[in-house]
């Protein structure tokens, strides 16, 4: 009997491995696609069947950061000779580099600025949502709040309609109060957006921390705030990490509002990347390069917090 069971366990184990493998392929294929396309020359980006073996090039990245135009005639030999290696890549691919008329400087594309905007807006809004969410959750968890359930439902209800529904009124409001196309505007928007989520998740985590810890600290001579800082916060770190990753991903990937509420100054990367399709023929390898770089912060952020995440995702994993 025991052996039969062991055998079936072995089979189940293999099935599980295969299932994980299939899931991984499904999930990683788009990422592989983006990453490989980002290093392909334009001519190989859209071949059918897709090119798997190719000599990787940095041309798409060079093109991503520089404003360029279609070349009417070949670049002059002296200019080509004097150009740095990445500029040559652009000429080699049959395009021209746009220079400032007066100074002759190379004009950068909008990508770096948009990327910076994305970082500023996502990091600040994540920080705000998580810190306010944690404090709110602590309040709900530890104090008697009149109508607690109603408040929590109200907080959650802000997530119950598709955000795009309020886009037009938001747009009008933002334009009136001067928040249109500002960093602050998007930070407020994303913070508000993530706050309800942060409150709910953090309440779950803080509820798990025995309140006896703080009470012991209170009796020992600490104030409530000190007890929160010294006891609750370290215990809640796992939850905070998980919440921060989720909030960051939501803010980082948000597209619709970023498209509508910004156009130049505060525009983030998501609406910028597809806008490149419009300039001339769609250059898929440049778009892939933009998307590839865009994936990195989330990957790094998640990687840094991975130890916390593993416990944080499986809710209530705090040891009693």
């Amino acid at each position: 009997m025991a052996e039969v069971k062991t055998k079936s366990e072995v089979v189940m184990n293999r099935v599980a491995i295969v299932a994980v493998f299939v899931a991984l392929i499904i999930m990683l294929t788009p990422i592989y696609w983006i990453a490989s396309t980002a290093f392909k020359p334009r001519s190989l980006a859209t071949t059918v069947p897709p090119t798997v073996m190719f000599e990787p090039t940095l041309t798409p990245f060079a093109k991503l950061f520089v404003r360029r135009s279609q070349m009417r005639e070949p670049v002059e030999q002296e200019v080509y000779e004097a150009a740095p290696w990445w500029e040559k890549l652009i000429y080699d691919d049959g395009e021209n580099v746009v220079r400032n008329r007066r100074s002759g400087d190379i004009t950068p594309s909008g990508y770096a600025d948009r990327y910076k905007n994305s970082l500023i807006i996502s990091i600040i809004s994540t920080f705000l949502a998580v810190s306010m969410g944690t404090l709110t959750a602590y309040g709900f968890s530890r104090f008697k709040v009149k109508g607690e359930q109603d408040w929590l439902f109200f907080i959650l209800s802000t997530r119950m309609l598709p955000p795009v529904v309020v886009a037009i009124p938001m747009f009008l409001m933002y334009r009136t109060v001067g928040l249109h196309d500002t960093h602050l505007g998007l930070i407020i928007l994303y913070t508000a957006f993530n706050l309800s989520f942060a409150v709910w998740i953090m309440k779950g985590f803080i509820d798990e921390i025995p309140k006896e810890y703080e009470e012991a600290a209170l009796v020992d001579g600490y104030t409530r705030l000190q007890a929160f800082w010294k006891i609750v916060l370290p215990e809640a770190l796992t939850g905070i990490a998980a919440t921060a990753v989720f909030c960051f991903i939501i803010a980082w990937n948000e597209y619709a509002f970023a498209l509508m509420m910004t156009n130049r100054n505060a525009q983030t990367a998501p609406p910028y990347i597809p806008s490149q399709v419009g300039s001339g023929l769609p250059d898929w390898s440049v778009i892939a390069a933009g998307a590839f770089l865009f994936l990195l912060p989330v990957a790094i952020f998640t990687f840094l917090l991975r130890n916390h995440l593993l416990r944080g995702m499986s809710f209530g994993a705090i040891r009693k």
Partner: peptide, 12 residues
């Protein structure tokens, strides 16, 4: 000073 049945020690 308060001594409780459980939970009064900080696991960290």
């Amino acid at each position: 000073a308060l001594v409780l049945q459980q939970y009064s020690l900080y696991p960290r």
